[in-house]
Amino acid sequence: CKDDIRKQFSFLPFDEKKNIAIMNKMEKENSVAIHLRKGADYLQSELMGKGLCGVEYYIKAIEYIKQNVDNPVFYVFTDNPEWVKNNLPKFDYILVDWNEVAGKKNFRDMQLMSCAKHNIIANSTYSWWGAWLNPNPNKIVIGPTKFFNPINKFFSSSDIMCEDWVRI
Rank of each mutant, 00 (worst) to 15 (best):
P72M: 03
Y58A: 05
Q8I: 11
G51L: 02
W165I: 05
D70P: 04
E100P: 10
K18D: 06
G103D: 06
K104M: 10
I20L: 11
I59S: 04
C115H: 10
K2P: 00
W98Q: 13
D15W: 09
D15E: 13
Q111I: 04
R167Y: 05
R167G: 08
N123Y: 01
N152R: 15
R167T: 07
I140R: 08
S127T: 07
V166S: 12
N119A: 05
P81A: 11
D164V: 01
M161T: 08
W83T: 11
M26R: 07
K104Q: 11
D159R: 14
K90E: 13
T78V: 09
R167H: 07
F9K: 12
P13T: 07
M48I: 04
R6Y: 07
M113N: 06
N149C: 09
L52R: 05
Y42N: 10
V32L: 10
I140E: 08
F14L: 13
I160L: 12
A102M: 15
M23C: 14
N119Q: 06
I22G: 04
F107T: 06
P89R: 11
K7V: 04
K85P: 02
F154Y: 11
W98I: 03
Q44S: 11
A131M: 00
A116I: 02
L36M: 15
A116P: 00
I62D: 02
K153G: 05
P81W: 10
F91M: 12
Q8P: 03
E82W: 12
L52P: 02
I120N: 00
K153P: 05
I20E: 11
S127H: 01
V84M: 11
M48Y: 08
P89T: 10
Q44C: 05
S10I: 04
C1N: 15
E29A: 10
F77I: 08
Y126K: 03
H118R: 08
F91Y: 09
V141A: 07
N134L: 03
I94G: 14
Q8V: 08
Y64I: 01
Y42D: 00
W128F: 08
A33G: 07
K66P: 03
P72D: 03
S45E: 02
W83N: 15
S156Y: 04
I94H: 15
A122N: 04
N24P: 00
N71Y: 07
H118T: 01
E163K: 14
F77H: 08
V141M: 08
